[in-house]
Amino acid sequence: MTEITPSPHSLQGMGTPEEAAYEVRAHEGALWTGSRLLIAIYAFACAALAFAYFYLRSANSDHLWRPHGVSAPADIGSAIMAFTVAAAAINIYGIRRLRRGGLLDWEVAGWTVLLGGLIALGLQCWEFTRLSFFPGSSGYASVFIGWSVINCVLLVSGSYWTETLLARHLRLRRAHADEGGDRYEVLTPRSTRINIVSSAHFWVFIALIGVFFWVFFYVAI
């Protein structure tokens, strides 16, 4: 068993061990609370966009909600949605494998999720160049552009979270190996586990939002 000592700027020397343990637990709780709050915050933002969609659709000002023939490229949109859903599913799979001790599986899943997220992001950016309508030509076009921007933010957030988890994991693993430990030993402290599970929940949230808006923009139009 290897112990990695706390950073010198921790609570060391300040309180009793019980207090320090209390602080660590509080921090873990804060991570858990914070990650759920993050989802709630994004949910309110996406709800505002969904409100805009339905408001403009029902208002249909000057019959310009969606003029005949106006639609976003369905093939690209479907691919974005598919990559996002796949990233979320692989993330869940990776966590299940990690729970069974499959560190390498989680690592591979993590990199795959990151790749999937970046591909979805790239496709979302590319889609901007393939639109057959002017952004200000209709209500549909406007909300679609708004959604695309928000989806980029969501994908960047999810990818950043996954990347930082993987980068931190690599650093820890290297430090552990330098100390003579097995580099494939599981290095999952509680706070990291909370982070990993929370990031997976965030990806599921991104995927759900992606599916909803895919239906709004490409299916139920």
Binding site: A21, G101, V197
Partner: peptide
């Protein structure tokens, strides 16, 4: 578990046991 490490928290071996 953390005594002597200045605030270490003990962790289980699997993510499933304490997932936050």
């Amino acid at each position: 578990a953390g005594a002597g490490t200045g605030g270490a928290s003990s962790g289980g071996s699997s993510a499933g046991t304490q997932d936050g």
